[in-house]
Amino acid sequence: MLELNGLNKTFNYGTPDEVKALSEVSLGIASGSFTVILGTNGSGKSTLLNAVAGTFIVDSGAIRLNGRDITASPEHVRAAFIGRVFQNPFSGTAPNMTIAENLSIASMRGKNRRFSTALSGAAMDGFYSRVKELNMGLEDRLENNIGSLSGGQRQALTLLMACWNRPELLLLDEHTAALDPKTGAKVLELTKTVIEKDKLTTFMVTHSMQQAVNLGDRIVMVYKGKIIHDFSGADKKALKPKDLYELFEDIKRREMIDPATSEILKANYV
């Protein structure tokens, strides 16, 4: 159970670049549920995920994960419970280290790292069998640097790494957006399999209406740092991509009108 309570975050406070990226965001997410977050560019989706992951500490509000208050914990402490996949395929892996070394770091998430060999024979066998499940032929390249892999391969590995030790919460930030459609679809398929297998609580940002409709059991729509729509249960099931398009059109229209109306008001009253 993830509970967000009145989260606020303002970037560059007190400067001309001030952005209110999150304002009074409250959300409760049941364990085992799959929530998709939608919103236009700059609406605050990534910021929301980063707030949960601990990339920054929120200005106010509270974040609780399965009863623990993690509002003020640093990122690496929360990482014990949270797995993440980033939009950029290069963010989630260490390029100058081998596949095996990357996996070994992931396999220690939430555990005490010690002075014992990272790549013991047993560990290598473990990496081999789980990488083999990806069906990408990477199991024979465990000692190659990750930097030599394609974006899709790296993203698949990042996903594997994020879920290596079952996380209490999985955060996916447009993790297929930078891949070509075919690879993207493959990684998405993989995502579904992993989530279903481990019954992971998932929080996924996407720009794809189709993905939003196909995946998950809840859709949260964000606009200017606020939650403006929240569909779950039967409402969510009933949604079609077309409905979502319309909601977006609506937002766009509002954005168009807002400045215009204010101009009219100004002309009349100032």
């Binding site: 990496f127 081999y128 199991e139 000692e143």
Partner: peptide
């Protein structure tokens, strides 16, 4: 089983 390089 992962095949490592042999010591030789």
């Amino acid at each position: 089983m992962y095949k490592r390089l042999k010591y030789s």
